[in-house]
Simulated assay, not measured.
Amino acid sequence: MAEAWKQTALLVIDMQKDLILPYSPAAVKGGEAIVPNVIKAVELARNRDLPIIWVVREHDSLGRDVELFRRHFYAADKTKLVVKGSSGAELVEGLEIKSHDYKLIKTRFSAFHNTNLHSYLQGAGISKIVVCGNLNLNININSFLRQTVFDAVSLDYDEVTVIVDATAAATSEIHCANVVDMKNIGVATPTLEEWCHANN
């Protein structure tokens, strides 16, 4: 690994079929469009020998671990989303968790909430994180990715980066507004091409 990339990890957030593909009521508009860039970001991370953390939602089929305000979606007559072991909880085609990657299961918006992500990163000597993936449940950026990013800043990671064209939101206006918010707290927001050429 190049010196510039030491202590850096890539987080890929919620790139699951039930959260990306258009058949799902939870799919983010434009989610499919970012899949190629997420694939490229993962390939680049592998080429740079960066640790890759796959952050996924997986829920109990009865919704017992789902936020209270969403539990009604797991009633008997509902189509349940990202249920552990279901095809909808799988990553979209083109993305694969390899044996040396790390899979982190979360049940809330932030990847840091009630998980071992922070301790895992500290144990691996990671002080810089790069984030890409799914942003929300068709509402706005701050459900998934933004919550994780704000928590990372609160936890004093040296650098937090979001690859802006490897993320999606319900509209371009929502995406842009939230990118501005993240920039305002010191988050770097390069395009994939800019990140590709950084520190080469």
Rank of each mutant, 00 (worst) to 15 (best):
G123A: 10
Y120F: 12
E90Q: 08
V83T: 02
V92K: 02
K78C: 12
K78D: 10
V83D: 00
E96N: 08
A75N: 14
A75I: 13
G123F: 06
N114V: 13
K80C: 10
F112L: 06
R108I: 05
A76T: 14
S119C: 14
A89Y: 01
S110M: 02
H72E: 15
G94K: 06
D101Y: 02
H113T: 10
G88I: 02
L91H: 01
G88N: 02
T107R: 08
H72G: 14
H118P: 06
G85A: 08
E93G: 06
A89N: 03
H113E: 09
Y120T: 15
Y120N: 09
L68N: 12
S110N: 02
D77N: 12
L95Y: 03
H100D: 12
S86G: 02
K103G: 04
G85R: 07
S87G: 12
L117I: 08
Q122N: 12
H72K: 15
L95A: 04
L68I: 11
A76R: 11
G125V: 12
A75T: 15
F69V: 15
S119M: 13
A124N: 13
K98V: 07
K128G: 05
V83W: 00
A89C: 08
R71Y: 08
I129C: 09
N116I: 14
E96C: 08
K106Q: 07
A111Q: 02
K80P: 06
F73L: 15
H118S: 09
L91E: 00
Y74C: 05
E93T: 08
K80E: 09
Y120E: 08
S127D: 13
H113I: 08
G88H: 02
Y74H: 07
G123K: 07
S86Q: 02
S119K: 10
D77G: 12
F112T: 01
S99W: 00
H113Q: 11
G85Y: 06
Y74G: 03
G125H: 13
N116T: 15
L95F: 04
Y74Q: 04
H113C: 10
L121S: 05
E96A: 07
L117Y: 01
S87P: 09
H100W: 09
Y74K: 04
T115K: 01
R70I: 13
S110H: 00
